[in-house]
């Protein structure tokens, strides 16, 4: 069985909500980011979203933009991301999902990308700039290699679009809390709650909320209304604020444990 599904099944048994942590491949370095991934899993992250750095990420705010710039400067590439996952898989069973721009996927070739990702142990893929209109270009290939395709649902998605989004998605549905880029302001929990409820009525897939979540309390409040939360910009900010990788790991560990603890109070 797919690692993502196994993870959600286990979480459901324990009546816990999923905590997904986003980290950039290659920031502060390839080894450094691999260390952060391992630390995040040990601290209580259920799924890791690996951001493959791209020079021009349109849906990201300054924190992830800068993280991508640092990673590219350190020599991070899609090929190196594949090597990193392959290496991580020797000691890690946590689901790993690629968050990647269409440019990088097309540049490698969609089929090659999916085959390689699956073979190194990637469990799913989020291509934020390939909405429903372009999804047929990658979803069938992800499916044939056994990887999940996670599409974004947003506050602006119409009911008709939501139905297509959930039926095209596998693994889980990623609900974007706000109309805006990553790391911005957080939407009102009541609004998120309404939208997530609407999505849950039309799908059995878990629905996770992301964008703008910055502290343990917000994570707790939001995870009450959905199946889990995704934290990106804040995790990167925490890890990057430290003076070196070792302290970054410590800071990230502390942050994730505090989020986990709050979420488990529900």
């Amino acid at each position: 069985m797919n690692r993502i599904r196994t993870t959600f099944n286990k979480l459901q048994e324990k009546k816990r909500k999923a905590l997904v942590i986003f980290l950039t491949v290659g920031d502060p370095s390839i080894t450094g980011s691999a260390n952060l991934v391992k630390a995040a899993c040990e601290a209580g992250a259920d799924i890791i979203e690996l951001g493959v750095p791209f020079s021009d990420p349109l849906a990201d705010g300054p924190i992830i933009q800068h993280s991508f710039t640092r990673a590219i400067a350190k020599g991070a590439t899609l090929n190196k991301s594949m090597e990193m996952v392959e290496h991580l898989r020797t000691s890690l069973d946590t689901p790993l999902i690629y968050m990647i721009s269409s440019m990088l996927v097309l540049n490698m070739g969609v089929q090659v990308f999916m085959r390689r990702s699956a073979s190194v142990g990637v469990d799913g893929v989020i291509i934020p700039d390939m909405p429903l209109e372009e999804a047929s270009e990658f979803v069938p290939y992800a499916k044939s290699t056994g990887m999940s395709s996670i599409l974004l649902a947003t506050p602006t998605s119409t009911s008709t679009r939501l139905r297509s989004i959930v039926s095209t998605s596998s693994g889980f549905v990623y609900y974007v809390n706000v109309s805006g880029v990553t790391g911005g302001i957080l939407a009102k929990p009541a609004e998120v709650s309404r939208s997530v409820a609407k999505i849950k009525r039309i799908t059995k897939l878990p629905v996770l909320a992301g964008f703008g979540i910055k502290d343990p309390k917000q994570a707790r409040v939001l995870s009450k209304v959905c199946d889990g939360v995704i934290i990106g910009s804040k995790a990167i900010e925490v890890a990057n604020a430290a003076s070196n990788n070792k302290n970054g790991i410590k800071a990230l560990d502390k942050f994730i444990r505090s989020v986990r603890k709050e979420m488990d109070r529900n």
């Binding site: 700039d129 909405p131 974004l152 602006t156 998605s157 989004i165």
Partner: peptide, 8 residues
């Protein structure tokens, strides 16, 4: 090739 938020 844009995020879903812009599609509508």
């Amino acid at each position: 090739y844009v995020i879903e938020t812009l599609m509508p």
